Amino acid sequence: MQTQEEIYRHLRDLRNELGVVSGRYGEISDGEIVMMMSPVPMHAYIARSIARQLDAQLPPPLGAFENADTDDAALGKLRIPDVLVVPEDAMKSVDPLDPHEISLAVEIVSRSNPNTDYVDKVADYPAMGIPHYLIIDPRDGTARHHWQIATQNGHPAYLNQVSYSFGDKIRIGDWTIDTADLPRYSDDQRPA
């Protein structure tokens, strides 16, 4: 019988092969490869805006980066945060990042699959040891910061959360993210 780590490694190899063929790379959680739709340009704009704000505040050796694999093979999880804060040297690897090096993971909620960010990653990120998780939701102009990992019901979970509305300044430790200029999906008035 295969261990969870062996199953994960097989899924990761399969995910990488699928990515070469399709040009898209999925995430892995709970024994499944989760292929995501390509994000809309506004999603990328918000991620870049947040990364720029963080970069202006981060002390060396930290940097804000977009879309990098992070995995915990023992847990069988591979995630790709939209924005992450990590030591710059960690980004020089060809292997997925060690999630324990990540200070903050940010996800921008897609219109098509919000449960991934609000349910699945709220469970996966504390299990992977990521101390701060920020959800930015352009669907309704809200944000939610999760932090302080502890064991609840036998599983790692975030003990604290606070909700924000676009226009608020989000404080995460010594860093501030200003949401005043973040667009909402409803702001896009182009024809579908």
Rank of each mutant, 00 (worst) to 15 (best):
Y8K: 04
R9K: 15
H10Y: 14
H10I: 06
L11C: 06
L11V: 13
R12K: 14
D13W: 13
L14G: 00
L14F: 03
L14N: 03
E17L: 15
V20F: 00
V21Q: 09
G26R: 05
G26C: 09
I28H: 09
I28L: 02
I28N: 03
S29L: 12
I33H: 13
S38P: 07
V40P: 09
V40A: 15
M42A: 12
H43Y: 03
I46M: 04
A47R: 09
S49K: 14
S49T: 10
I50F: 06
L54W: 06
L54C: 04
D55A: 12
A56H: 12
Q57Y: 09
P61S: 08
L62V: 04
L62P: 04
G63L: 08
F65I: 12
F65N: 04
F65M: 01
N67L: 05
D69N: 12
T70C: 15
D72I: 00
A74E: 14
L78S: 12
L78T: 06
I80W: 02
D82K: 03
V83Q: 00
L84S: 08
S93H: 13
D98W: 12
D98P: 08
H100K: 15
E101D: 08
L104K: 05
E107W: 01
E107F: 07
S110H: 02
N113W: 11
T116H: 15
Y118F: 13
V119H: 13
K121Q: 04
V122L: 04
A123I: 07
P126G: 00
P126V: 08
G129C: 10
